[in-house]
């Protein structure tokens, strides 16, 4: 474990806390893409299959349980909670995310570390996570104004993988045989997808104005 990875995991956890806070405090999920939340639940379920077979550390196990439980709780909330589900922007959240699932799964069949079910699902979860934010970014562009908590949620979600890139550079420099090309390349693509959001987020922060993404 290094400081970059810890910062990444804490930022990731913070993004989930901010999202839960928004939904719980405002009893509303307007501006949140259910499709992105479903993709994240799928990412964690596909990646953490080794939860019961490979014990890495107490920290690792606890974080995996927290990520799976929170992502499923958010999907449950947006689909079934009587009050919250009414505020879901169903007509704006129209990204065809099944293509993302199919495309990344095919890619995982072709590009993986080992042609085993666990490795294919792990690679699938890495590729899917890289594009999972797309429905959310599309929804933000369609819904025009972005409320603060939603903007912070997306910002922390993008920042966490940027910390992971620093972690991979650090591990590459300090560990003799460290190569994680799948996670590295996918993580760079993932962070790149946030680039324009980061730009508009920085502009809105600098001008102390409302965050607006160009349609």
């Amino acid at each position: 474990m290094n400081i970059f990875r810890l910062a990444g995991d804490m930022t990731h956890l913070l993004s989930i806390i901010v999202l839960l806070l928004k939904i719980y405090a405002t009893k509303s999920c307007s501006g949140i893409s259910l499709k992105t939340q479903e993709l994240y639940a799928l990412v964690f379920l596909a990646r953490y299959l080794d939860l019961f077979t490979d014990f890495i550390s107490v920290y690792n196990t606890i974080m995996k349980v927290v990520f799976i439980a929170s992502s499923l709780a958010i999907v449950w909330c947006m689909r079934l909670h009587p009050l919250v589900k009414r505020s879901y922007d169903k007509e704006l959240d129209t990204f065809r995310h099944y293509f993302l699932i199919g495309g990344t799964f095919v890619l995982a069949l072709v590009l993986n570390e080992k042609f085993t079910l666990q490795e294919i699902l792990w690679a699938f979860s890495i590729y899917l996570e890289a594009v999972a934010i797309l429905p959310q970014l599309v929804l933000l562009q369609r819904s025009g104004n972005v409320d603060n908590l939603t903007g912070q949620y997306v910002f922390f979600l993008g920042a966490y993988r940027a910390f992971y890139i620093l972690n991979w550079i650090y591990r590459y420099l300090t560990e003799p045989r460290f190569t994680r090309w799948i996670a590295c390349v996918s993580g760079i693509v993932q962070t790149g997808i946030y680039a324009d959001f980061f730009y508009y987020y920085f502009i809105s922060w600098k001008n102390n104005s409302k965050l607006k993404l160009p349609a």
């Binding site: 990875r5 080794d50 690792n60 974080m63 460290f178």
Partner: peptide, 10 residues
């Protein structure tokens, strides 16, 4: 398997 081959990252 080798510890390094295990996915030790979240």
């Amino acid at each position: 398997s080798e510890p390094s081959e295990k996915h030790d990252e979240l």
